[in-house]
């Protein structure tokens, strides 16, 4: 369920568009930022706000890789392994982080496609904040900096904190 602030924000977002359905992706982002993932209540509520069926909402939502249909913890770590990162060390970072945080429910490590950070390859994002020119070790340090509170992360869908 949207908080009352977010519900107001949701209505404001809907009003921006000539057709309310356009607000679907923004509202899913809003819900994910609030709840950490897209849960059943969120889809139901958004379907209601936009007068869509839940099948429609789910069908659209599941097309997009950023929307998580299961809880993913506090940090989404997106490691690029597309070609520039492939030839500059991305896979090693991915494997290192996958191993390191395998049992950590707070950290969700995923392999992603090119992040448009090839100039700083290999790169990753933590909650959609960029980090570039990494090694497995520096990547781990960055994640730990978030976890220890030295760094403040964006919200889970990339919304500003």
């Amino acid at each position: 369920m949207f908080s009352s602030d977010n519900l107001q924000r949701a209505r404001e977002i809907i009003s921006r568009y000539p057709s309310s359905r356009s607000a679907l992706l923004p509202l899913l982002h809003l819900a994910q930022d609030q709840d950490g993932w897209i849960n059943d209540e969120a889809m139901t509520e958004i379907a209601g706000l936009l007068e869509l069926t839940r099948a429609d909402v789910y069908g659209t939502c599941s097309f997009y890789t950023m929307f998580k249909l299961e809880p993913v913890g506090t940090y989404v770590v997106s490691v690029c392994t597309n070609v520039t990162c492939l030839v500059t060390g991305g896979p090693a970072i991915l494997h290192h982080l996958e191993k390191t945080y395998a049992d950590d429910p707070d950290v969700f490590v995923e392999e992603v496609e090119c992040l448009a950070a090839c100039g700083g390859a290999p790169a990753l994002q933590v909650n959609y904040e960029y980090h570039e020119r990494l090694t497995p070790q520096s990547a781990e340090q960055i994640i730990d900096a978030y976890r220890s509170g030295q760094r403040t992360a964006r919200r889970i869908s990339g919304g500003p904190r």
């Binding site: 057709s19 356009s22 679907l24 992706l25 899913l28 982002h29 659209t60 890789t65 950023m66």
Partner: peptide
């Protein structure tokens, strides 16, 4: 308007579909 992770939405008509919430 923010996309949500789909390269194909760079193709202009896919982008329009996405912008329409599909």
């Amino acid at each position: 308007h923010r996309g949500a992770g789909a390269y194909i939405c760079g193709e202009e008509t896919a982008l329009l579909e996405s912008l329409e919430g599909r």
